[in-house]
Every structure is written in structure tokens, then in C-alpha cells.
Write a protein that binds this DNA or RNA. Structure first.
Length: 288
DNA sequence: AAACGGGACAACCGCTGGAAT
DNA sequence: AATTCCAGCGGTTGTCCCGTT
């Protein structure tokens, strides 16, 4: 494994004995021990005084993204995924801002999630991930699907601090479940069925809203298409997601599978994209 | 069993803005 | 006011791991 990059800066790093590449256990230990004794900050000085042959930048990144005790490991929960999707609509690629709403998650992790999970879908469907078409699909398929997953779980773990909760509340207002039930996929998220699933302690007990926060432009922009019976016209869609709630298909109570009538969703006056093209993409996804 | 390919994620790079001098 | 230094950010690349052929 080469720890030397091809750039000129790294060759100068090499000249002054700076290490690059993956961190060793010994380096981690040095960094953690130093920070536990002296605190973080002044990264260049810290790197030098800790005896690390690393740049201050590298030390900072290693600490913030990996070694810091409150960094959460493991897969993102559906709640966290939902929050990321919604916040990305509002904030764009401002990963550090988005990360502020997900305690324990780093901007790097969120950025990686977006690139590997979300943009991957856009790529597979041959849609620009910044396009209205793709945003529409997220609003109308992925988010309702995540909400269904959340609702389906017996207990929704808290993912927001009271600070982020109140901030989002004040900015966007609470997301009312009845609005979600009006989306094309109609996932039977009845208001009273989630009354025990609130996840934000700071909310008023009288609130009838689920503790998922909306941008007015997200779910409410889905065309208000009435639910339709699942039948032969339904296109069966499978996305190649893993078992960890990254799928964006929709659920058929009849079959236990997740289904989408995409023609219905993209058709009519609310059509935001070429349904034929997307249908082809969906079929190719099915074959994938 | 080896080669290959893709996914996931850690780490790096360049740039920017703000604080310090 | 100008310059330097540094922390932080977003984009990109590198590496490891695992499944498939």
C-alpha cells in the first residue's frame, strides 16, 4: 500500500516525513491520548506535540470523523435517512449543516450516504440527481417508503436533539401524517396509529403530528392522486437495495411486496418527466 | 481458487472565510 | 489595511471488503 500520493504537496509532505494514508492503531492512540489530556483544536500544533507525523488537517479529520467518542457507527436508521433527504431538499449539499441535525453523524458520512445510496439510484435510473424528476421520485416514493418503515417499527428511537427539533419545527412546521396519506403511495400512516411513536420529547403532548419534519416543498408537492387498487396494471419495481432500509419501492398489502404504478405517478397534468423513459429505467432496474 | 467488479467508507485535496498579527 | 495562518467545508480519490464469475 502506498501512502504517497502523486501530488506535489504530498511529495513535499514526504520530504518532511509526514505520513499519509490509513491511520494505524498507534497513531489513533497517540491522538486520543493527547486530546484527552489537552483537548482538541490548534491542530497543527497538536499533531506536532502528540508526536504524530501527520498534518493538522489529517488529525482533525481523523478525530472528528472517527475517533471522537460521540461519533455514531453503523448504518443510518430510516429516521436519519428521512431527515437527510428532507434537509437536502432544503439545504442542498451543505453536508456540515445537515450533519448538525443528526447528532453523532458526520458530514463525511452523510455525504457518502448521499453519493453511494441516493445518487446511485439516480444513476441507475439515468436521471440527474439534481433534477426535478429525481426529487419528485424521492418525495413520492422514497420518503413515503421511509415513513412506512418508521411507522412499521414498534418504537421510533429519538434521533433529534431538542434543539434541532425546535429549529426544524419553527422553520418548516411539523409534518402532519394526514398529508402523507395523500401521496400516491398511500401508506396508511393513520394519525392515531402512530400516536405512541413520537420521537421528540420536546414536542407538545397535544401535538397530533409525527416527529418528522417537512419542508413545504417536499411531500406536499407530490401530486394528490387518489389511491388505486393494486392490480395487473401495477408495475412491480425492485430496487437493488440492501436490507437496511435503503429501498425506495412501495408496498402492496396484497402481496407483501413493494409496488409502484409509476405511470400513475408521473402521468397526467402533474407529469414532471417523461414517463416512458422512466418506465424503461424502472424496468431495467427490475432486470438489474 | 483466482480474477474481477462494485459498494462502502476513510482519507486527501483545494478552496474559502475568519481570526490573528 | 494587508498578510499570514488555520479551521472548516465540499468534492474527489484511494483502499478494503465482499459477492460474482
Amino acid at each position: 500500500m502506498s501512502f504517497l500520493s502523486k501530488s506535489s504537496s504530498s511529495s513535499s509532505d514526504e520530504e518532511i516525513g509526514l505520513r499519509r494514508g490509513p491511520w494505524t492503531v498507534e497513531e489513533d492512540s497517540l491522538l486520543v491520548n493527547y486530546i484527552s489530556q489537552h483537548g482538541e483544536g490548534r491542530w497543527n500544533m497538536l499533531a506536532h506535540r502528540a508526536g504524530l507525523k501527520r498534518t493538522g488537517k489529517s488529525c482533525r479529520l481523523r478525530w472528528l470523523n472517527y475517533l471522537k467518542p460521540d461519533v455514531k457507527r453503523g448504518n443510518l436508521t430510516p429516521q436519519e435517512q428521512l431527515l437527510i433527504l428532507e434537509l437536502h431538499f432544503k439545504l442542498g449539499n451543505r453536508w456540515s449543516k445537515i450533519a448538525q441535525y443528526l447528532p453523532g453523524r458526520t458530514d463525511n458520512e452523510i455525504k457518502n450516504y448521499w453519493r453511494t445510496r441516493v445518487q446511485k439510484q439516480a444513476k441507475h435510473l439515468k436521471i440527474d440527481s439534481n433534477s426535478a424528476a429525481f426529487q419528485h421520485m424521492i418525495r413520492c416514493i422514497w420518503i413515503p417508503r421511509l415513513l412506512q418503515k418508521i411507522q412499521g417499527s414498534s418504537a421510533i428511537p429519538s434521533i433529534q436533539t431538542s434543539q434541532s427539533t425546535s429549529l426544524l419545527d419553527s422553520q418548516y412546521g411539523p409534518l402532519n401524517i394526514t398529508e402523507i396519506t395523500q401521496t400516491p403511495q398511500v401508506l396508511s400512516l393513520e394519525r392515531n396509529s402512530i400516536s405512541s411513536s413520537r420521537c421528540c420529547s420536546s414536542r407538545s403532548p397535544s401535538s397530533e403530528s409525527m416527529s418528522i419534519y417537512k419542508s413545504p416543498n417536499i411531500i406536499s408537492e407530490c401530486p394528490k392522486i387518489p389511491p388505486r387498487e393494486m392490480g395487473d396494471s401495477v408495475v412491480n419495481v425492485h430496487f437493488p437495495f440492501d436490507d437496511n432500509s435503503y429501498d425506495m419501492d412501495t408496498f402492496s398489502p396484497a402481496t407483501g411486496n413493494f409496488l409502484t404504478n409509476y405511470d400513475q405517478m408521473v402521468g397526467g397534468e402533474n407529469n414532471m418527466m417523461n414517463g416512458d423513459i422512466l418506465a424503461d429505467s424502472f424496468w431495467s432496474m427490475d432486470q438489474f
